[in-house]
Design a protein around this nucleic acid. Structure first.
Lengths: 213, 213
DNA sequence: CGTCACGTTGAAGCCTCTCAAAACAGGTGG
DNA sequence: CCACCTGTTTTGAGAGGCTTCAACGTGACG
């Protein structure tokens, strides 16, 4: 097998999934953990009455499929076409380097989830939508370097309903707040799956959520 | 049982804090991680306008103070008098057993946080309060064995505002829903800091949130 | 006994959801 | 290329639930 780096080698080959393809289902026996190599994968929880909470949109470098007790508590589906690597949980135990990496990643995930919870419980629908766009922009900025005060273009490959189920809103409200932000001159929506942030700082102020101390 | 097991020894001596005592503050440099030995510790995040989200009520055996990048993103305060053990992050790296334990704990924490998020975004105020009581009862049941259909008494050492900031509600709403549940005959409130669950299954049904699949 | 923090209860207002319909996009077959 | 169909997005109107503001009750402590 061709190996380029140590981390890659233990994680195995990249498998490419088309968009909207399930990777595993909620309730499946958890055998492997996954890492996004390219594209976007979303994880979500379903309730019996088909209510849904999207727990994360994972992009390059993020792990998913972590399960504490051998059963996936969420499902995972590709949003776009995506490259995914995986490793069996059994093999993981014999790799202290990857284990340490996963531990750090897990803590960050807890932080992120708690931040999201904060957003969902403490802010208005407008602030949530703004925060969502800011999150996407900052995530993109981690890869590409971004200049302040320049328009930032972010992709919205997921549906409005996906965004709604992530933010704990209805799709109608997501739609309304997006047009509101556009009318405020903070963003531009050239097409359904693209948002162009024209005033990043203004958008960020709308998102609220500056930590104290 | 006196502290003699392996996990205890590496974690160091138990330090006892009085109630309402801060253990660390949001923004502090993270040097140690903690484990609750007895009592209740709550972790919370503050925003600049003093909005607050309580991210967890930790009881016996739970870890807190995990930080991905050397800075605590939340604060921690004792709710009741509590015994707490700790270990420096540096020392942790040389202990693969505790590391593995922490990894499992971290995954469970992600699951719990996501469940909580589900509760906060998808359910009514009544369901949230019911879910909170169910959570406390089940947590207690993990220690003591509990018989079905017998009244379960749970302590509510935290204030109504604490509960509200945990559930993303106002303290008035928490108060209202508690009396509602009492009038429905599902619980009894002999005093402010005690709830007696008289119909556990009924309460659980009110809490909603049965996972699909 | 007074004070102060917390808890409960009541009334009004706002935000988001729900229901409903129209505009729009993507895909298929004629 | 167009007509058509299906699913998504947008926009509108009404209803409901939670918050906010306010007052009152209660328990702890000086």
């Amino acid at each position: 097998m061709p190996l380029s780096s140590h981390a890659d080698s233990i994680l195995g080959a990249v498998r490419v999934y088309p968009d909207k393809t399930p990777i595993y289902h909620q309730g499946d026996t958890a055998m492997r953990i996954f890492r996004v190599n390219s594209g976007v994968v979303m994880t979500f929880r379903l309730l019996e009455d088909s209510r849904r909470q999207i727990t994360g949109f994972c992009t390059e470098g993020e792990f998913f499929g972590l399960s504490p007790d051998g059963e996936y508590k969420d499902g995972a589906v590709t949003v776009t076409s995506a490259g995914v690597q995986s490793i069996s949980i059994a093999a993981l135990e014999s790799d202290p380097v990857l284990s340490a990496k996963l531990l750090a990643h897990s803590w960050r995930k807890v932080e992120d989830t708690q931040s999201l919870m904060m957003t969902l419980t403490k802010t208005s629908s407008e602030a949530r939508v703004a925060a969502f766009l800011v999150m996407l922009a900052e995530r993109r900025g981690r890869r590409d370097g971004h200049e302040d005060s320049a328009p930032i273009q972010v992709g919205l490959p997921m549906s409005r309903l996906d965004i709604a189920d992530y933010l704990g809103l209805s799709r109608e409200t997501v739609s309304r707040r997006l047009t509101d932000l556009q009318e405020l001159g903070l963003i531009d929506l050239p097409d359904i799956h693209t948002a162009c942030i024209t005033q990043f700082d203004g958008l960020r102020r709308r998102a609220g959520l500056m930590a104290a101390a």
